[in-house]
């Protein structure tokens, strides 16, 4: 590989390429100065647990956005998956079966989105908006709008830990690895980047566009299903109206993490960093005791600044076209 000419350029290149992690670092340092309780193992463990569900959803959105698509049905599908999983657990008492059913529910529902987008050429925005309404209606229908309680050992997914690490966090890192592996070491990953970057060029290079889009929805479905199970388990209840607005939160995390809404750009690690940024912000503002109205304003401003900084850094890297 050819190397960049001088060391300064090289340092700058690396800094710019990793600007999102720098932002994360700055937030981390400022937070630890603001409150002495921030930099404790227990608190950081809390932050990890708090971001795990949203970050898992964001990994799914990351794959979709890179490929030039979107999923607005996340919140509703995630509720269906969680409720069905709890129902199966209550009937069978099997955690494994409950987990499988939860994940499969997400997959089955996303197959609908995948079919609409890949084979009926419905715009992803519309297809998943339709699925959002269908899924929410379905989950309210099967629960009659009532919460499910007394879910017993089901809480182990969301509240248990493996060693010292909370189970949802373990799942989050597993999904990070899955997403990273797909994007970097599989044909599917290359197809995802190529389709989002330039669908026609991808097609002309022999990439099967429709099939790829379909598969990405299926994978997203598995992530959403898993997240639903973890969420319901964490809150120790089956909440049919859970997850409203989660699609936007997951999108926010992915975008802060450097995923480009115009497609073709994004990484698994970036999305994790995005999850951390959102999680750390919420955490430090609660620790310090910022008023909840002010919190919303600060969060919005910091998100906008982070994205502006990231974009500016990336644009500066671009060379002139001749």
């Amino acid at each position: 590989m050819k190397t960049l000419t001088n060391r300064f350029e090289r340092v700058k290149y690396i800094a710019v390429k990793n600007s999102i992690y720098l932002i994360l670092g700055v937030i981390f340092i400022i937070s630890s100065l603001l409150n002495e309780n921030f930099l404790t193992v227990l608190n950081l463990r809390n932050v990890l647990r708090q971001i795990s569900v949203i970050t898992i959803l964001a990994f799914g959105e990351t794959l979709l956005i890179i490929a030039g698509m979107i999923d607005l049905s996340v919140g509703a599908v995630f509720a269906v998956a969680g409720i069905l999983s709890i129902t199966v657990f209550k009937i069978t008492g099997s955690l494994l079966l409950a987990l499988i059913v939860g994940i499969l529910s997400g997959v089955v529902l996303n197959i609908i989105s995948g079919m609409l987008v890949s084979y009926f050429k419905t715009p992803p925005f519309i297809a998943t908006l339709a699925l959002m309404t269908i899924a929410r209606g379905f989950v309210l229908l099967i629960t009659k709008g009532q919460n499910i309680y007394q879910i017993g050992r089901f809480v182990e997914f969301g509240q248990g830990s493996i060693g010292f690490i909370p189970t949802p966090v373990v799942f989050m890192f597993l999904m990070l690895i899955v997403t990273w592996y797909i994007l970097n070491h599989t044909r599917l990953g290359r197809a995802i980047y190529a389709i989002g970057g330039n669908e026609e060029a991808a097609m002309a290079s022999g990439i099967q566009v429709a099939k790829t889009k379909f598969i990405v929805y299926v994978i997203n479905g598995a992530f959403v299903g898993l997240a639903g199970v973890l969420f319901m388990s964490r809150v120790n209840a089956g909440l049919p109206n859970a997850g409203i607005g989660f699609e936007l939160e997951a999108l926010t995390v992915a975008i802060i993490g450097g995923t480009s809404f115009s497609g073709g750009i994004g990484t698994a690690a970036g999305t994790l960093a995005g999850g951390f940024i959102v999680g750390l912000l919420n955490n430090i503002m609660n620790l310090v005791g910022v008023n909840s109205y002010v919190q919303q304003i600060i969060k919005g401003v910091i998100i906008a600044l982070a994205v502006i900084f990231d974009m500016a850094a990336k644009n500066r890297r671009a060379r002139p076209e001749e």
Binding site: H185, G206, G263
Partner: peptide, 25 residues
């Protein structure tokens, strides 16, 4: 070209089967 992606990925795009064995690139 997929202009937002790098030289390596663009050049590999129609040739992925050459670098993939058992699904691993």
């Amino acid at each position: 070209l997929v202009t937002v992606r790098n030289v390596r990925e663009n050049m590999a795009l129609p040739n992925l089967d050459k670098f993939i064995r058992n699904g691993h690139l």
